[in-house]
Nucleic acid binder design. Structure first.
Length: 651
DNA sequence: TTATACCTCA
């Protein structure tokens, strides 16, 4: 027979959970709740402290405000709340992602039940409104407080700082009778948030009680303002005084400034000091892996999490989903996604974007529909993903429909990026006039990306007349953008108008513009190797070159003529061949073939769109060497297998 | 004090 747990047992169980800092699962709490309700013995003897413990244990954003449900159940059982109840409720509301309403509910309850606001409740309320960004309510609570201790003052400074009111924060800071280290740190953070890094630094330098938090705050401030060198200098000056947050701040700083390689290096240094990585470390690092396409490292992090070292919450879960999507492993990404207990808008966006990148347009739309059904409201990012997914798969009808429904059905105002997606979608589909009309009628002035999309469409569909018109707009917007000249040159070259190509080239030189060089990378033995087009500096270049020769010969036998299409200039055949031959993706694929065991899939990441010639060549290479080759270009994946590509030659 | 998704032209 099952033992019936008594109130005391439940109480001590929950107390122990809290003391040992274990976050219980929602199901466990609901079971305890059910026991309280179904067991008459417990029900009639339940105390406010038992309920308080239950509420405190449910302080977890992903529990979807379960704490309010427990509070209501407590009232239904005729157990009177006490001050602790409200202080616990306020803390739960503070931590909850959309606690804005729940905190107000608690506030009303305190008023309704006639509880006296003491310093603890007032500070709790202030803290809640501060975190919820309700500055007016926070200020109201603050001014009504008969006495304000340091904690209350600090909370108010933080609230003002968070809402961009750094002037009032400073005023309050200057008027405070006593300051502790938190006061100084709140002030430093307030300046950092307002973008006034100079004042933040002055405050930091003047701070007589500098602690770890002060250092971390100022380092983060420099990272956020893009001054990585200064941040790193302070970081290094800390020596052994760094904690995990310090390392996380520096790593995420590099990620935010797109210095992904440095983020990885810094993580390696962190490991060398035996500082245990936290969830936040891995979230930033996974983001770096996603951008670099470093699947092996991403997998290593996944294994580290699975060994039970870290808690897999929504944020970490999403970072994993995104990493697997961007590293070409869409199946694993979907598996993890389905197992996530809660999915926020980030998770759905990652999946919609990921499916689109792999050319699964219909599946991306399915995901979008499921997202709606699950009650997650799509945002601007969702639509960028959805529309580009339609574009990559040639789903013109669907793309048009979703774009037209954005405002009315979903309440999302289209931004310039959505117009960009639509111009791309319509243009690729050959609806050039419709695309041009959309640009003419869009509510904001079109940027170079919008015109650029149309220009690319003109190139695909060989519409020289329209491309000239588009080119005028582009050159007006930015005469120094090298990509424009490359585009125009491409169009002339495809029409064999070599004089115009030459003029184009001359203009480029005269205006001192240059093209972004193609760059491809490949992970071999946990090292990321980078190859830049035409660059011969790799230590194994001589061997790679011999191998490229061999490949070229074999491809010729298969009937592939090199350099027929995508080399722009008026150069002789031999020169053409060597120009595409040293395209970065081709060097990376060759290096992968040479340096990895037979049969192992090859994965390459490129910074630009795949070139037509290399695309054709890699298709043949995949057949010739019986290798699966994955190339992630600027905006999508190409899975090459047995002479075919998953993009069906549409990109 | 640290944290995830953004792309549409090159």
């Amino acid at each position: 027979m099952k033992l019936i747990p008594k109130v005391r047992d439940l109480t001590s169980f929950l107390t122990n959970l809290h003391k040992s800092n274990i976050k219980p699962k929602l199901e466990l709490l609901q079971q305890i709740h059910a026991q309280i309700l179904t067991n008459i013995d417990i029900q009639s003897n339940s105390t406010s402290s038992l309920w308080n413990l239950l509420i405190r244990a449910s302080t977890e954003p992903s529990f979807n405000q379960q704490f309010l449900g427990f509070y209501k159940a407590m009232l239904a059982q005729n157990v009177s709340p006490d001050k602790t109840t409200f202080s616990v409720l306020l803390r739960a509301a503070s931590a909850s992602a959309n606690g804005a309403t729940s905190g107000e509910v608690v506030h009303c309850q305190i008023l309704k039940l006639g509880f006296e606001f003491d310093l603890i409740l007032q500070t709790g309320l202030l803290d809640f409104y501060a975190k919820a960004g309700a500055l007016e309510s926070a200020h109201l609570v603050f001014t009504e407080m008969p006495e304000r201790d340091v904690v209350a003052n600090n909370a108010m400074i933080a609230a003002l700082g968070k809402n961009g009111n750094v002037g009032d924060a400073r005023k309050l800071f200057d008027e405070m009778p006593e300051r502790n280290s938190s006061s100084w740190n709140s002030m430093i953070t307030a300046y950092c948030k307002s973008g006034d890094i100079a004042s933040a630094r002055l405050t930091f330098d003047f701070n007589p009680v500098k602690d770890l938090v002060s250092w971390n705050a100022i380092i983060d401030g420099y990272c956020k303002s893009g001054q990585l060198m200064v941040a790193r200098e302070l970081f290094d000056r800390m020596g052994d005084a760094k904690n995990a947050v310090t390392w996380n701040t520096m790593i995420s700083g590099y990620v935010q400034c797109t210095e992904f390689g440095k983020a990885v290096t810094t993580f390696q240094q962190m490991q060398a000091t035996n500082t245990k990585p936290t969830e936040v470390t891995m979230i930033s690092l996974l983001s770096a892996c996603a951008h670099l396409g470093a699947l092996d490292m991403g997998k290593w992090i996944h294994a580290y999490i699975r060994r039970g070292n870290l808690k897999l919450d929504v944020v970490l879960g999403n970072a994993l989903v995104d990493m697997y999507c961007k590293c070409g492993n869409i199946e694993t990404a979907l598996d993890i996604f389905h197992e996530l207990p809660t999915k926020n808008v980030y998770c759905w966006n990652s999946v919609v974007i990921g499916l689109g990148m792999h050319g699964f347009g219909d599946e991306a739309i399915d995901a979008f529909v499921k997202m709606e059904r699950n009650g997650v409201k799509p945002d601007g990012v969702t639509f960028v993903g959805l529309l580009s997914a339609c574009s990559h798969s040639g789903l013109y009808y669907e793309g048009r429909r979703y774009f037209s429904e954005m405002v009315g059905t979903y309440g999302v105002e289209p931004g310039i990026e959505h117009y960009g997606c639509m111009v791309d979608l319509l243009g690729r589909g050959g609806f050039l006039e419709e695309a041009l009309e959309l640009i003419r009628t869009m509510p904001m002035s079109p940027n170079n990306v919008v015109w650029g999309s149309l220009l690319r469409a003109c190139q695909i569909h060989k519409d020289t007349e329209m491309s000239k018109q588009v080119m005028d707009h582009l050159l007006m917007l930015d005469p120094n953008d090298g990509a424009n000249y490359v585009f125009l040159s491409n169009i002339y070259a495809s029409l064999n108008r070599w004089n115009d190509v030459a003029t184009c080239r001359r203009l480029m030189i005269e205006n001192g513009v240059c093209k972004t060089p193609g760059c491809s990378s490949i992970e071999v033995d946990n090292n990321v190797h980078e190859f830049i087009a035409g660059d011969t500096s790799h230590p194994h270049f001589a061997r790679i070159n011999v191998f490229l020769d061999e490949i070229a010969k074999k491809l010729r036998v298969l009937g592939h003529e090199l350099g027929m299409d995508s080399v722009l200039h008026d150069i002789d055949e031999e020169e053409k061949e060597s120009a595409v031959r040293y395209h970065s993706e081709r060097i990376a694929v060759a290096y992968g073939l040479m340096s990895t065991p037979r049969g192992k899939p090859i994965r390459v990441v490129k910074n630009l769109r795949a070139c037509t010639d290399c695309h054709a060549a890699i298709k043949l290479i995949s057949k010739l060497f019986s290798r699966e080759i994955t190339v992630r270009d600027r905006s999508r994946f190409h899975h090459f297998r047995d002479g075919k590509c998953s993009c069906k030659d549409y990109w």
